[in-house]
């Protein structure tokens, strides 16, 4: 009874007993947890499908398309895509004015947010905002860079996308 060895063994056994109990009778608890995770996953899938169908199918309107439909669009918020027209960029106090172009249709833009670091002439951008008269009031500029990668090495390459750098 009061042998130290047997005491140590008993406590060791009870420890293993706790462990073993958790191992041998876990099916209900494990099942509940697994179903809870699956429920979270299902909700996430639903959320992503909702977001996808709501946003991704027509992620942006081109400048030309939006200009044509501007009466219909009114002052609703949408994403507008176009290439920044060289020479049109004017930095102002509270933002930047420029124009974007697609299919030879140019749309004037007034932006009130900080442009990202790659914002520059000739780069395609996606703007978030709405029309106000004939000017697109942008609250966010996103740069849509191309899939071309060219080493910054002036002797090797002279053009990107057929445009002189």
């Amino acid at each position: 009874m009061d042998e130290p060895g047997s005491d140590g063994k008993a406590s060791n056994l009870s420890k293993v007993a706790a462990k073993s109990k958790a191992r041998t009778l876990p099916s209900k608890r494990r099942a509940r947890r697994a179903w809870a995770v699956l429920a979270i996953v299902a909700v996430s899938i639903g959320f992503l499908l909702y977001k996808g169908l709501g946003n991704s199918l027509v992620y942006f309107r081109t400048a030309a398309g939006a200009w044509k439909d501007r009466a219909q669009l009114g002052s609703s918020t949408f994403r507008l895509e176009g290439v920044v027209v060289p020479g049109s960029i004017h930095t102002l106090n509270g933002g930047v004015d420029f124009a974007v172009e697609s299919s030879n249709v140019s749309v004037e833009v007034h932006d009130t947010a900080n442009p990202p670091q790659l914002f520059q002439p000739n780069i395609p951008v996606v703007l978030v905002g709405h029309f106000s008269g004939s000017v697109f009031q942008s609250t966010q500029i996103m740069v849509k860079h191309s899939s071309n990668y060219i080493a910054a090495h002036p002797n090797r390459v002279a053009t990107v996308n057929g445009k002189k750098l």
Partner: peptide, 21 residues
């Protein structure tokens, strides 16, 4: 740094998030 946003709900990003889930 390249686009100006950490995340946007375009088709590539949304379908990739879906793949993860």
């Amino acid at each position: 740094p390249a686009w100006g946003v950490w995340w946007t709900w375009d088709a590539r990003l949304t379908t990739t998030a879906l793949l993860f889930v």
